[in-house]
């Protein structure tokens, strides 16, 4: 039984609120969140072993994924990189398969066309100016032009990060792809900035979801909270 069906059975009257996110999209959203978190956590530790950028910068070990360092040395005689790599090359399957399902379903179901298009520059400019003046009204279930561009942008960033990652992983078998990213060394830099773009998106995305919690409720339960609690409406 789907969550929607449960809701229908338990509700006294038929629920008039539209389903904003079908169950498939909600599952894919949270699987993607998990995969991205695992990839970034393990990727940060991998980065630390040989930074791609010529900067004196590393991620604090406490924020990386790959096990306790002393345990790793005691048990495996290994200084903590193997686990991070195992996470990275394990979670990549979840990330890629889930994303592929999302893109295919997004196209076929009309989700992309309906919710992320059209995207016009004038609408983006107006919405961005309104957002900067804190005057952009959030309408649940309808994306403004700034949101639309951010969603296309993060989709692009994830795809670029995956492709540059593949060209680091397989610079011989996928050498045409590696050359497209400017060779092995440059692909590492692209991979890093792809990650940085995704992290930037996550910061904005999570902050806004916490500012407008009804969006978070909708991504968990499928529908927004009770009508009376929605912004812009008066309680009866």
């Amino acid at each position: 039984m789907t969550a929607d069906a449960i809701h229908r059975v338990s509700a006294r009257a038929p629920d008039a609120r539209p389903v904003l996110h079908p169950i498939s999209r909600r599952i894919m959203h949270w699987l993607n969140a998990l995969a991205i978190l695992l990839m970034i956590g393990s990727g940060w530790r991998i980065y630390d072993y040989y930074p791609a950028l010529p900067l004196d910068f590393g991620f604090p070990y406490a924020y990386t994924l790959g096990g306790d360092l002393s345990l790793s040395e005691a048990l495996n005689n290994e200084d903590g990189l193997a686990n991070a790599l195992a996470w990275h090359f394990g979670a990549m399957w979840l990330l890629v398969l889930n994303l592929a399902a999302y893109v295919v379903i997004g196209f076929l179901s009309g989700h992309f066309r309906r919710d992320f298009l059209p995207l016009r520059f004038s609408a983006f400019r107006d919405d961005l100016l309104a957002a900067l003046r804190f005057r952009l009204v959030h309408r649940l279930g309808e994306y403004n032009a700034v949101q639309k561009l951010l969603y296309w942008g993060v989709l692009f960033a994830i795809i670029i990060t995956i492709l540059s990652g593949l060209s680091i992983w397989k610079p011989v078998q996928l050498q045409a792809l590696t050359s497209m990213f400017g060779g092995y060394e440059f692909a590492r830099i692209v991979h890093f900035f792809g990650m940085a773009a995704i992290v930037g998106f996550i910061i904005v995305h999570v902050s806004l979801a916490l500012l407008v919690p009804s969006t978070l409720v909708a991504m968990i339960l499928g529908r927004g909270p009770h009508r009376a609690h929605q912004a812009g409406e008066k309680r009866p």
Binding site: L37, G41, A62, Y63, T64, L65, D68, S70
Partner: peptide
């Protein structure tokens, strides 16, 4: 390592 153990990891 002591520092790491006392810190939240991901």
């Amino acid at each position: 390592r002591l520092f790491l153990r006392q810190t939240l990891s991901l």
